[in-house]
Amino acid sequence: MAGYVYLIRVGDLYRIGKADNLDKKIRKLKPDELLTSIMTKEPETLEARLLRKYKSQRIPETGYLKLTKRQISECKKQFDLKGNLPHTLDAEVSITLFASFLLFGTNFLILNYFNVGFLRNISYSFGFASIPMIILFLTGSFGGYFSDDLSLFSLLTNRIKGLFIAIAMITMAFLMFRLN
């Protein structure tokens, strides 16, 4: 469900949170300043990543963080889509697909160098390329989500996608190997 993720300042402390209605949440919290916010289709995902990233700055038993100016600037970049944290679980699948593509290409070039044979080369490359998808299926994460931060069911769709893509890759590898 779509919602907002925000970064507010209260005195010299900061808070990262999520809200369905940002205006209502800001009126309730009464911060000194709303530094930035972003509307996203998966606010709990981005919030969990940001809180995980800055967990060592968290003041125990509160939702507040003690951030340096550099960390504040870095955190704001995440909201501007210039940061390195994916904002959605779909981005996690994209990262994993990219890793599979890199593994396929690297493996293909290495095996091509050793003259393994075209069909066998493709077969082995598809097999190796399925590894990131298998990791996504088993752990629910490949690009950096921590399963502790997100509910099992929010990761379930990613795990199923990873399983089906891995099955497709392994099937392709098997068929190419049998054709050889």
Rank of each mutant, 00 (worst) to 15 (best):
L34W: 05
T36L: 03
S37N: 13
S37K: 06
M39V: 14
T40H: 00
K41G: 10
P43V: 03
E47I: 03
A48P: 02
L50H: 01
L51A: 13
R52N: 11
Y54S: 04
Y54D: 05
R58I: 01
R58W: 07
T62R: 12
T62P: 05
Y64D: 02
K66S: 15
T68G: 11
T68F: 08
T68N: 10
K69L: 13
K69F: 02
R70E: 15
R70G: 12
Q71Y: 04
S73A: 14
S73R: 07
E74W: 01
K76A: 01
K76I: 13
K76E: 13
K77I: 01
Q78W: 04
Q78G: 05
K82G: 13
G83L: 01
N84R: 15
L85W: 05
P86R: 12
H87Q: 12
L89R: 07
D90Y: 02
D90M: 07
A91C: 10
A91G: 15
E92G: 02
V93G: 02
V93R: 02
V93T: 09
I95C: 07
T96I: 04
T96W: 07
F98C: 08
A99N: 04
A99G: 03
S100Q: 03
L102E: 03
L102P: 06
T106R: 00
F108M: 07
F108D: 06
I110T: 00
I110Q: 15
I110D: 07
L111M: 11
L111N: 15
N112P: 04
Y113E: 07
F114A: 11
N115K: 15
V116N: 06
G117K: 05
G117T: 08
R120P: 00
Y124T: 01
G127Y: 11
F128Y: 12
F128D: 06
A129P: 02
S130I: 06
S130A: 13
S130K: 01
I131S: 06
F137V: 00
F137H: 04
L138W: 08
L138P: 02
T139R: 15
S141M: 06
F142H: 08
G144P: 08
Y145D: 09
F146R: 15
S147A: 14
S147K: 14
D148K: 15
D148P: 05
D148A: 14
L150Y: 05
L152P: 10
F153M: 12
F153I: 13
S154L: 09
N158P: 01
R159N: 09
R159L: 09
I160C: 08
K161G: 06
K161M: 07
G162I: 02
G162N: 06
L163R: 12
I167V: 13
I167N: 03
M169L: 10
I170D: 02
T171W: 14
T171S: 13
M172I: 04
A173W: 11
F174C: 09
F174R: 11
L175T: 00
L175V: 05
F177T: 05
F177E: 10
